[in-house]
């Protein structure tokens, strides 16, 4: 299980990064070619060449539009979303020392939904706040409430989960109340569909928001990889190893909230990714965060891209909400992980 690398093994690292990129590219390629309108691979590549490198290859305008503006942006958004949620899950599990921690279970997603719904239906904050801003404020508020509730009831990693369950119930109720009492029938249907997660509305401008957030979030997390390792035996152990516990917690919890809120604002709430992917990644690369965090990013991205493909082809003529697909495949996957990683009696 040990990785006794004295000096960094650059060729091996490079090979790993390359393999991850190839796998991700393959997944995106699948996502781009699969769909209602079957588009052959050569046409897809030509469309990508046109869109990405400004070439002028022969592709019909409709196919060009479907491939580049619809499917590629959607696939890349799915990749960002999966990576960001998996990253958030890994960070929360390390900081709270609880294998069940993730944005969805801790209510951060629920809070983000409430914030987004407030903006969407109540018009809170007007044009200045926007959907993402509302989602971010909602998720920060939930995080603060859950943290207060957890520390007020005596701290401990199980308390955090219980507080998270309470927080997510509360915010889901608030969201439901706003939707059922104040939204028009059409608004309500749209919100409900959005709440279960949906990549359908994603266009390129969404990516210009999500990509920098995910990148910065990832870099901030990587800067704290060693500090996260030090949390393995608790906060006192981390502090005695010279980690600035309070600052690291604040920075990383805010980063997690920002990552989750951005993704929820764009695609709605998607559960299970933050929970399952970090465990799967740990299974692949071990518990050291310098390896685990990039692994989460890549595995989460590939998982979400493929989940989105499934959501489009499982039921003909219909697109399932992505949250349903991740739960359908995530829950059994989680059970398998738990079973295989069970401790020797």
């Amino acid at each position: 299980m040990s990785h006794a690398v004295l000096k960094p093994n650059w060729p091996a690292r490079f090979a790993l990064v390359l393999a991850s990129l190839v796998a991700l590219t393959l997944a995106v390629t699948v996502a781009v070619t699969v769909g209602e309108m079957a588009i052959p691979l050569p046409v897809a590549f030509r469309a990508l060449g046109n869109g990405l490198f400004g070439l002028d290859l022969p592709v019909s305008a409709i196919q060009q539009g479907v491939i580049f503006d619809y499917r590629l942006s959607r696939a890349l958004m799915a990749a960002l979303c999966g990576g960001a949620l998996a990253l958030s899950g890994a960070i929360l599990q390390a900081l709270l020392r609880n294998p069940l921690a993730e944005p969805y279970i801790l209510g951060i997603s629920a809070g983000a939904s409430t914030g987004a719904v407030c903006v969407l239906i109540l018009g809170a904050g007007g044009a200045t706040l926007g959907l993402s801003g509302g989602a971010f404020l909602g998720s920060i508020a939930t995080l603060a409430i859950v943290a207060l509730l957890a520390s007020g009831t005596g701290g401990g990693s199980d308390r955090v989960i219980l507080a998270g369950v309470a927080g997510s119930q509360l915010f889901n109720a608030v969201t439901a109340t706003i939707v059922t009492t104040l939204a028009s029938a059409e608004q309500a249907r749209g919100v409900m569909f959005w709440l279960l997660g949906n990549f359908g509305g994603v266009r390129w401008p969404d990516l210009w928001v999500a990509a920098p957030v995910a990148l910065i979030g990832f870099l901030v997390c990587m800067m704290h990889a060693k500090a996260l390792d030090a949390f393995a035996f608790g906060t006192d152990a981390a502090a005695s190893l010279g980690v600035a516990v309070t600052r690291v917690r604040l920075v990383l919890l805010a980063t997690t909230a920002l990552l989750t809120a951005t993704m929820v604002a764009i695609v709605g709430t998607v559960g299970f990714v933050g929970l399952v992917i970090p465990h799967a990644a740990r299974f692949l690369v071990g518990s050291g965060h310098a390896r685990l965090l990039p692994a989460c990013l890549v595995v989460g991205a590939i998982f979400m891209v493929l989940a989105d493909v499934l959501s489009r082809i499982l039921v003909p003529q219909q697109i399932l909400p992505i949250g349903i697909v991740t739960a359908l495949f995530g829950a059994p996957a989680f059970a398998i992980i738990l079973y295989r990683a069970r401790r020797a009696p």
Binding site: A232, F233, G288, A341
Partner: peptide, 11 residues
């Protein structure tokens, strides 16, 4: 000091 994280002695 205990942990849930899967670690080896040298970790």
């Amino acid at each position: 000091a205990a942990t849930e994280v899967q670690l080896s002695v040298c970790d």
